[in-house]
Amino acid sequence: MDLEEEHEQNPENPEEIVIDSDSEDSIEAVFPISEIQAHSDSVCSVAFHPISSDIYASGGIDDIAYLYTQNEGKELTGHTDSIIAVSFSNCGEFLAVASMDGTITIWNAQNGENIAKYEGPTEEILSISWHPRLPSLCALSNDLSLWVWHIKKNSPVAVIYGHPLSIAKFGPAGRYIYAGGKDGSIKVWDMKSEGFENAPPICTILGKAIHNEEVISIDMHNGGIIVSGSKDGCIGLTNFNSKKIITKIKVCEESIESVEFCKEMMWFLVASMSGELRIYECDSLNTRCTIQVGMGIVKAIWVGFDIYVGGLEGLLEHYNGRTGERVRKFSGTKETILDFDVKQ
């Protein structure tokens, strides 16, 4: 990624495509092939197994998670508050279930046997992230603590205290943990640094430098660039190697719910509660495409060159990431889509 370290203003792109998805009337409508009524209340999180399309998981407000094999669900209990995240390890061996009760349970992803229960945080878990290669999990709690566990050890390998963070993830190579703050800050830790959990972050972009409000979406490119989105309607790009801000862009007046780099091209997407989906070119920072989805977007992800978005009033749609054209609309509910996953 060849970006200048500082970029004051995003220039207008004369070739930008603007699409109003409501104007398209020839798209394919897709209806559910099956419906599973397992939970007694709202489902907060879902995930496909990274290898087997017959295995998936869900977690809900009813304090229960389910592991499904060929649509047959096994109840995973042990939590006393809502399940905020279910996530399979990248190797496919483990399933992590995170709860607002401050605990995380680890399960065998094939047979649903309980492997471990991690305790320590005194408040709810805000986010979890698996290492891209190792059976290691990082978890962020609302009590200002960030935990790293190795599944084959009974105690955490690192705990970082005292940072008011809202979201934290492993970097694409697994060496770094990057995070967004409730104060609008961006922070990065190097796990290869001895005693990193007791040392200051290797990169800190203070709140107000980019974001005036909480960071709620963040992604890292393997070239050392971080894109972040905030409740203030702004996105920021940071080069954590040089510890410099590349740019800050005011996108809208609503919160930026999703930012994500495309793995196929040097693009990234930005999705907001305003109902707007944008695709940016990384090098020029030009807006490649702007799509008016029409409903507030809760989540947007790349799947190859395709983009899937979910949001308010049952919004669940598939777009061509190259052209911005809507490909399919998934029907089945008028309720807000809290989470979704796509299996390639």
Score class of each variant (00 low, 15 high):
258 S>H: 10
266 M>V: 01
247 T>M: 03
324 G>C: 11
160 I>H: 03
239 N>Q: 02
62 D>M: 05
198 N>V: 05
164 P>V: 09
7 H>Y: 14
40 S>A: 11
261 F>W: 13
286 N>K: 15
81 D>M: 06
98 A>R: 02
139 A>S: 14
220 M>K: 04
254 E>R: 12
158 A>K: 05
265 M>K: 15
139 A>N: 03
126 L>V: 02
203 C>L: 11
75 E>A: 15
195 G>Y: 04
152 K>L: 14
111 N>C: 02
264 E>K: 14
269 L>H: 11
123 E>D: 15
342 V>M: 14
157 V>F: 06
69 T>A: 05
158 A>R: 08
44 C>A: 10
283 D>A: 10
48 F>R: 05
48 F>A: 04
273 M>F: 14
251 V>N: 09
45 S>K: 05
292 Q>F: 13
292 Q>P: 00
98 A>E: 01
49 H>S: 06
85 A>R: 03
164 P>R: 06
160 I>Q: 01
153 K>P: 00
202 I>E: 07
103 T>F: 00
32 P>H: 08
14 P>M: 07
229 G>P: 08
104 I>N: 00
47 A>I: 08
153 K>H: 13
216 I>W: 03
63 D>F: 15
46 V>I: 14
156 P>L: 13
325 E>Y: 08
157 V>D: 11
2 D>M: 07
257 E>I: 00
87 S>V: 01
119 E>D: 09
21 S>W: 05
343 K>V: 04
231 K>T: 08
312 L>V: 10
148 V>N: 03
70 Q>M: 10
37 Q>W: 11
168 A>D: 07
141 S>C: 10
38 A>H: 10
309 V>D: 03
270 V>W: 02
298 V>K: 15
344 Q>W: 14
206 L>I: 06
224 G>Q: 01
47 A>K: 08
74 K>E: 15
193 S>P: 00
171 G>C: 05
39 H>R: 07
103 T>K: 04
79 H>V: 07
272 S>F: 01
189 W>K: 01
196 F>W: 15
13 N>C: 07
66 Y>R: 09
315 L>P: 03
295 M>L: 14
145 S>V: 02
300 A>H: 03
317 E>K: 12
179 A>F: 04
154 N>M: 09
173 A>W: 00
194 E>H: 09
80 T>F: 12
234 C>G: 08
17 I>P: 00
122 T>H: 09
237 L>W: 07
192 K>P: 00
72 E>T: 12
10 N>D: 11
108 N>K: 12
240 F>T: 03
228 S>L: 09
343 K>N: 15
253 E>M: 13
171 G>F: 01
206 L>Y: 13
152 K>V: 07
321 G>A: 07
27 I>R: 02
271 A>D: 12
8 E>F: 12
140 L>C: 06
126 L>K: 14
303 V>A: 09
230 S>V: 05
239 N>E: 03
321 G>P: 07
46 V>F: 13
57 A>K: 06
4 E>I: 08
289 C>E: 01
313 E>R: 09
7 H>G: 04
79 H>G: 04
221 H>P: 04
231 K>M: 15
171 G>M: 08
284 S>F: 05
118 Y>M: 13
68 Y>V: 06
253 E>T: 10
164 P>K: 11
24 E>K: 09
51 I>F: 10
